[in-house]
């Protein structure tokens, strides 16, 4: 089949992409070690992960030389995923003030009962409104 001779000529390219992915993994671990200020740590981490995913998808999964039908499917899927992400997250972001803050009280109670607290101190039990 015709597109398989492309696979051979890309061997060199695959090695380069492999190396790039290694480097990016080291980068992402390094960045998270540095504890950036809240929004930036998240944004940089996600950017690196998206870049790595993009490299794997474009080169390893031959998406760069794919037929338009596959792009249509992936476009529809991407739209569905964006809807699946956007609406629940936006909803819970809005609902936050309505939550009854039992969480830490119960968790702490349960934690102490299950075993001695191992890791960092829990947030102090906020008083119930």
């Amino acid at each position: 089949m015709s597109d398989h001779d492309d696979a051979q000529s890309h061997v060199k390219l695959y090695w380069m992409i492999g190396a790039a992915l290694f480097a990016l993994t080291i980068a992402t671990v390094g960045v998270s070690k540095v504890h950036l200020v809240h929004p930036w740590g998240l944004i940089v981490g996600l950017a690196i992960a998206t870049l790595k995913a993009g490299l794997v998808a474009a080169i390893f999964m031959h998406l760069k030389w794919e037929s338009r039908f596959i792009y249509y499917f992936l476009g529809v899927t991407l739209a569905a995923v964006i809807i699946l992400f956007a609406i629940p997250i936006w909803d819970f972001e809005y609902l936050r003030p309505l939550f009854v803050e039992h969480a830490d009280v119960a968790a702490q109670g349960h934690e102490a009962a299950a075993h001695p607290p191992v890791h960092g101190a829990e947030a102090p039990a906020s008083s119930h409104p």
Binding site: F73, L74, V76, T77, A80, V81, L84, F85, P88, I89, F92, E93, L95, R96, F99, E101, A103, D104, A107, E122, A123, S126
Partner: peptide
């Protein structure tokens, strides 16, 4: 594509539960 939706749902749940969690 269907697997993207499957893991996408797990990531949505992760983000929602993380933002809504107290700690």
């Amino acid at each position: 594509a269907s697997e993207v939706m499957l893991f996408g749902t797990l990531f949505t749940s992760y983000i929602v539960l993380r933002t809504a969690a107290a700690s």
